[in-house]
């Protein structure tokens, strides 16, 4: 049984390790991008160029993209919180209009197969259109956005250089997507442990990792692989009656009520509060929710059940989740506003 459990732990780790270049233990921390072994998928119609990424970075931090000139992408995706909304359960958009959902982290968003909490947007170029135009986010009409950016000489010039045409909503979304594909984070203590640094994880985090990848803790079935998510929508028994129906908002099906996309856990210690509505303030609250088996709900995923973990085991799981924090990711100058 013990051997079986370790196999469950080791097989995913070995698979992760196979994808990574060897990193010597205790070596000076390399550039995070050097640790990225995965090939970022780039759509053929939006090739990545340095100029486009730079334009995307400028746009990402520019509040002039919003109707009242006060809300940038970075207002709700703040770099110091791993590009999430730093303590706010839901975000506030133009004219103080409040949203209904928690802004997710953009950590490794290039690898998300599905975007938004329902997971119904297939690519970053299309996803970006949502917040740019949504009434309670940035509230811009395509024509107004094009007019505003065209009136700013540096943008008019940059769009001409990058796209060979004036600013448009589509080009803004394409540039933002190019920048977002550089938000890569693979230098957490967990990554260093996988790369061979035996001292990267604390004893509590090691115990938590064993639980995480075990049938007892049962986290890894949904938070799977190097991205710690399978991008699938699930009902986690957060409520018996969901005020926000999730995936059912789109499908209209009863069985989809309360289903939201499984989020990545990379940098999760930086992205509180948690769940689609930011209703759980701390990782411990989240762990306690899963340990209890959630609230009764007919749509709850079959994996949601009382786990019977002790208090110290819950602490260990939290310690492991904290080991997924990549400190270099949030201070990487290439990802911060240009000076």
């Amino acid at each position: 049984m013990r051997v079986g459990r370790w196999l469950l732990v080791l097989v995913p780790l070995v698979l992760l390790g196979l994808e990574r270049p060897p990193v010597l233990p205790h070596a000076p921390a390399p550039d995070p991008r050097a640790l990225v072994p995965r090939v970022v998928p780039i759509p053929p119609d939006n090739p990545q160029t340095p100029a486009k990424v730079e334009l995307g970075r400028r746009l990402f931090y520019d509040p002039r993209l919003s109707l009242d000139g006060k809300v940038a992408c970075a207002s709700c995706h703040r770099p110091e919180f791993a590009f999430s909304d730093g303590g706010n359960p839901v975000s506030v958009g133009v004219f103080g209009r409040e949203g209904t959902r928690n802004a997710p982290t953009l950590t490794n968003v290039a690898f998300r197969r599905r975007l938004f909490w329902e997971g119904r947007s297939p690519r970053l170029e299309l996803q970006a259109v949502g917040p740019l135009t949504a009434h309670h986010e940035m509230g811009m009409e395509p024509e107004a956005l094009a007019r505003r950016l065209s009136s700013i000489p540096e943008y008019a010039r940059a769009f001409q250089e990058v796209f060979g045409e004036p600013p448009s909503l589509k080009n803004v979304a394409f540039a933002l997507a190019a920048f977002e594909r550089t938000l890569l984070s693979y230098n957490s203590p967990f990554d260093r442990f996988v790369a061979g640094d035996d001292r990267a994880l604390s004893p509590a985090a090691l115990r938590g990792m064993e639980l995480f990848f075990s049938e007892r803790g049962d986290c890894f079935h949904c938070h799977v692989g190097p991205e710690f998510t399978d991008d699938e929508p699930r009902n986690t028994g957060l409520y018996t009656v969901y005020p926000d129906v999730g995936l059912a908002r789109i499908t209209g099906r009863d069985e989809d009520v309360g289903k939201f996309k499984t989020p990545t856990l990379r940098n999760v210690a930086l992205t509180a509060p948690y769940m689609h509505d930011g209703s759980k303030k701390t990782l411990r609250e989240v762990m306690e929710h899963y340990n209890r088996g959630g609230e009764p709900n007919l749509n709850a995923d079959p994996l949601i059940r009382p786990l019977g973990l002790s208090e110290s085991e819950v602490d260990d799981l939290v310690a492991f989740l904290e080991s997924l924090t990549d400190a270099q990711f949030i201070s990487n100058p290439a990802l911060l506003p240009s000076r």
Partner: peptide, 13 residues
């Protein structure tokens, strides 16, 4: 059609 139409529904393909 397209994203510049102002009619594309980003969260709901």
């Amino acid at each position: 059609l397209g994203v510049n139409s102002g009619m594309y529904w980003a969260w709901n393909p």
